[in-house]
Amino acid sequence: MMDGQRTPFQAYRYLLPALVLEVGFVFAPLALSLYYSVHRVRYYQLGDFNGLQNYIDILSHRLFLNSFLVTCSFSLMALTLTFATGFGLALFLNRDTAGSILLRTVVLLPYVIAMLVGSMLLKWIFSTDAGLVPLAAAWFDVASPTVLADPEYAMAAMVANGIWRDSAFAMVMLLAGLRSIPPNLIQAARIDGAGSYMIFRRIILPLLRPAILITLIRLLLHFANVLTFPLILTGGGPNNATDTLALRIFRIGFEDFDLGKANAMAIVLCLFNIAAVVLLLAVFRKTRGGQSL
């Protein structure tokens, strides 16, 4: 029998479509970005090679540190609160009653609304002239806060935007994880005498580790790189209080038309992402017991 013969060439042929996509949409843009980041690029005109000058310029800019800190604090707050909300919802809605199914759909709605539309919706809610916040404040007879004009409120509004939209994502990921835990294990633990807390601590949480890790990484990358929230909701203000790295990249690239510097900053952000993921993985690896993740 001559069939079933496999050559290395055949293996590459099967891999080819995936490799083309990976190269076309990940490696090529990254390489291009690296290339631009060490050149002068003004108004889409590729200029001379200028080494690390773009990097030096952006890192020494007076607003860089601010953006870095804003990105860190936004990511951390949004990540923590979104994950906690999503986890709570997943645990609460991990049943197949009619109410749970309905509520899951309701929770998912913000996630299926386009991010742009959702952020504009929140902007309207927070707006001083015609929003819901002044209306609600009037109803309770308290002074209406000017949400988007106050540095701390503005940051809170952005975090709220993240929670409102992305808890649904966390919920779906964690629900899938919860569903993959065999019900027999929970039953066995109940018969073994474990209470709800012990079942959660010793059975559910450890078995949910892969789902938790993936959810955290996806959320972290999403928040660290999110452009729509600050661009639509706050415009980076007031007084640069919500000026994230992603927003600065956008501004430098498409408002100042300095694509060299914008790409240098994008590379910096990419390194920042990698560092954050490595940190998360390290934390997870430290606490694992007998699991591959």
Binding site: P182, N184, L185, Q187, A188, A189, R190, I191, D192, G193, A194, G195, R202, I203, P206, L207, G289, G290, Q291
Partner: peptide, 28 residues
């Protein structure tokens, strides 16, 4: 279930996959 003085062996054993055999036995 925990107050009935019973123990159960499941068809698929329902061993806790993330615990060692010793930890599985110690769990109850």
């Amino acid at each position: 279930p925990d107050r009935r003085g019973i123990a159960m062996v499941f068809q698929n054993y329902a061993l806790y996959p993330h615990m060692t055999i010793a930890e599985n036995l110690a769990f109850p």
